[in-house]
Structure formats: structure tokens, C-alpha cells
Computed example of a mutant assay.
Amino acid sequence: MLLLPVLALLLSAQVAISDLYARRVSNRWLACVGAVALGWLLWTWGSGAAAFPGTHLAGLGVGLAALLPFYLLGWMGAGDVKYFAVLGLLLGAPALLPIWVISSLMAGAHALCVILAPGLRASLPLRAQWLHARAQQHWQARPTARHIQALRQGRVGIPYAAYLAFTTLGFIAWSTYGAGP
């Protein structure tokens, strides 16, 4: 396996955990992985071991340009945009479309569940509503729940970067092991 897909796997695992747990994407991880990837691409091109990394550089630009409008509208965090751009650098521009489509479908399903949950909860029998309220109280009283809330610092929303990460892990596994004879 080449270095760039391994970097994408490692970064995606870190991003998924961080986004689910604290709703954050680490700029430090993105910068480090992006710098290593850019250095690797330029070194392999300069040494003649690989062709010009145009598809990877285009992936960086396309990844940034594709999600930047959503950030500017306030629909997405900056970390999601930067992560998608680094994915474009790591995997190349052709990988971005399937990753984006599948991630967006998963995030859309999540959003639909969030929108429908209050109405469905209200239609439950009273005993089930009471059990749900008790479970929520027990969860909120746990130190883990308080720790997660403190880490999130009030950030709410759908963990889109985590969906990008899950899709990236699947994409790399499929392209490495599933697409071939």
C-alpha cells in the first residue's frame, strides 16, 4: 500500500473519533498530514519516481472549492472543508465525488432522523416516553456525558467530517481490496 492511502486511513480514523466525540477537526493533524503528503508528492515527482501530481493538487483545490460555499453559508464547519481538501490532496480529485455523495447521503439521513425524532418521540406510549426521559437523565448525570459536553463547548450539529471519514475508509478498502478480479 502506498503512503498516501495509509495517511488517509490514519487521518480519517483520527477525524472520525474527534468529530464524534468533540465535534472538532484538528488543524494540527490536517496541517501535518497535508505537509507530509505534499512533500511526498513533490519528492516522488522530483526524483522521477512518479508523474506530476496534478490530480492530487487538483483534488486539493476541488475539495476546498466544493465545500467552501457551505462554510460561508454557515451550514458547515471550517474543519470539514479543510479535511475534504486534504482528502483531495491525499487521494486525488477523482476520489472526491463518490466520497462526497455517500457522505452527504449519510449526513442527510442523520438530519432526517434529527428532524423526525421529536415527533416520533411524542407518538410513543407514555411508558416509553417516561423510560426515554429517565435514560436521558441518567446519561446526562454520567461524568462521560459531562466531559463530552465540555469538549464540544456548545458545538452542535451533524458530524459531517466523521461521515466523510467513514466513507473514506470504505472507499480506500473498496479500491484496495474490492475493485478487481
Results as ranks from 00 to 15, higher is better:
164 L>S: 04
144 T>C: 13
154 G>F: 07
168 T>Y: 11
143 P>T: 14
158 I>P: 09
168 T>W: 11
169 L>A: 03
157 G>V: 15
157 G>I: 11
156 V>T: 09
139 W>Q: 13
145 A>Q: 08
159 P>I: 12
161 A>M: 10
164 L>I: 07
169 L>D: 03
155 R>C: 15
164 L>A: 06
158 I>Q: 07
164 L>Q: 12
148 I>V: 00
150 A>Q: 08
167 T>G: 08
150 A>H: 10
134 R>W: 14
142 R>P: 12
138 H>R: 10
152 R>E: 09
155 R>T: 12
173 A>V: 05
165 A>C: 02
151 L>D: 12
170 G>S: 14
146 R>E: 04
151 L>P: 03
163 Y>A: 02
135 A>T: 09
145 A>M: 05
160 Y>W: 07
146 R>D: 01
147 H>M: 09
165 A>H: 15
134 R>G: 14
164 L>N: 09
166 F>Q: 04
153 Q>H: 06
138 H>K: 13
138 H>T: 11
153 Q>T: 13
143 P>K: 09
135 A>S: 15
139 W>M: 10
142 R>H: 05
173 A>N: 00
140 Q>N: 12
162 A>E: 08
167 T>W: 00
134 R>N: 11
150 A>E: 08
138 H>M: 12
153 Q>V: 13
143 P>D: 15
167 T>D: 04
139 W>T: 13
166 F>P: 04
